[in-house]
Design a protein around this nucleic acid. Structure first.
Lengths: 170, 170
DNA sequence: GAAGATTGATGAATCAATCTTT
DNA sequence: AAAGATTGATTCATCAATCTTC
C-alpha cells in the first residue's frame, strides 16, 4: 500500500481544484485531506509499535485514561466523554482491554446502571512500558519538529473547542 | 457522544504528561491526539453533508479522482496508489460506488488481470453537486482561517513526503 | 421518561490468504 | 515469481434499537 509515489497527490489535487472551481475552497480541501492522511500515517506507525504490547492506539488511549485517573477506575460513560467517542466504541474498547487482562469490569456500588473499568497490575505495567516506548519515539511524529507540533496543536484547539464545546485556555 | 465538555481533554493530558514523564514528548503526544480528534470531527461533518448525495467522504474522494481523470476511468490499483490505501479498501470503496450507480467496473482491454473503474453520468452529476456544496462550506473547516489551513498543509506535507516517498515541491 | 450500557447493523481501515493473469 | 484484485478476518467508528435502573 505504501508504495513510493512519484508526486504529491494533494499538490496535484490542489492544482486541479484551482483550475475547476477557483481558489476559494482550495486551502480547505488541501488541509482536510492532509489531516486525513496524517491521521492514517500516525495511526499505522503507532499501531505497529503498540502491537507487541498487545495494544492498539485507541485501546492505549483508554488504558492511559485509567492509568492516570485518581482511583485507577472510571465509569464507562466518563471514559467515552473524555475520548469523545460513542458509547458503543467504549464497550468495544473495554471488551478488548478486558480480554487481554489489562482492565476488569467492576459494578458501580452506588448506581447499579453503571459499570466501572478498573486497571489491573498487568495493565499498569503495560501502560508504563508502552508509554516509555512512545515517549522515546516522540509518538512517531518524525520528521516534524517541536515548533511544528506546537503549531498543529494550537491551530486545532479552536476546531476542537468549536465542536466539543469547551473554552480554549487561550 | 458530542456532549459539551467542561474542559479541554488534551490540555488535561498535556498537564498530566509533563508531571509524569517530563516535557520532552508532551508536544508530540498533544499534536498526535489533536490530529486524531480533528480527523474524527471533520469526517463526521463531511459524512453528514455527503449523506444526502449518497456518499461518504472516502467514496467522495475516490469518485473525484475518477471525475478529474483524463478518461473518466482508472485501474483500481492506481486509485489505491493515489489514495494511499490498501487494495482491499479500494475494492470495498468501488463496490459501494457501484451499488449506487456512480461508477461501473469495466475490464481492462490490454491487461486481463486489471479492472477499470469508470464514472457514470449520474456519478458526474453527483460529483459536481457534492463538490459545489463542500466548496461552499469550505469543507466544514470552520472556525479555522485561511492562514491556519495553509499552515496545516505546509507542516503536514513533510510528514506525508517522509512516509509516502515523494519529493515535496518546497 | 431519561441515563448507562449493550447488541446488531454498516462503513472504512488493516492483514493474510487466494485466484487469475502476466 | 510477481502483479492485480478479491474474499475472509479483526478493529474502530457511527447509528438505531433494546434492556435495566434511576
Amino acid at each position: 500500500m505504501s508504495k513510493r509515489l512519484p508526486f504529491d497527490p494533494i499538490a496535484e489535487a490542489r492544482r486541479q481544484w484551482s483550475t475547476h472551481w477557483g481558489r476559494a475552497a482550495t486551502p480547505a480541501m488541501a488541509a482536510v485531506t492532509s489531516i486525513m492522511r496524517a491521521q492514517q500515517i500516525l495511526m499505522g506507525r503507532l499501531n505497529s509499535a503498540l502491537k507487541p504490547h498487545g495494544l492498539t492506539f485507541p485501546r492505549y488511549e483508554a488504558l492511559m485514561i485509567l492509568y492516570l485517573s485518581r482511583h485507577g477506575s472510571m465509569p464507562l460513560g466518563k471514559i467515552g466523554e473524555r475520548l469523545q467517542v460513542h458509547p458503543t466504541s467504549v464497550t468495544s474498547l473495554i471488551d478488548g482491554l478486558e480480554r487481554t487482562g489489562y482492565i476488569r469490569r467492576v459494578p458501580h456500588d452506588e448506581d447499579r446502571r453503571a459499570t466501572l473499568a478498573e486497571i489491573t497490575d498487568a495493565g499498569r505495567r503495560t501502560a508504563e512500558d508502552a508509554t516509555a516506548e512512545l515517549n522515546r519515539a516522540r509518538f512517531f511524529t518524525e520528521p516534524l519538529r517541536r515548533a511544528e507540533l506546537d503549531s498543529i496543536s494550537e491551530i486545532l484547539v479552536r476546531l476542537r473547542a468549536d465542536e466539543d464545546g469547551f473554552k480554549p485556555v487561550a
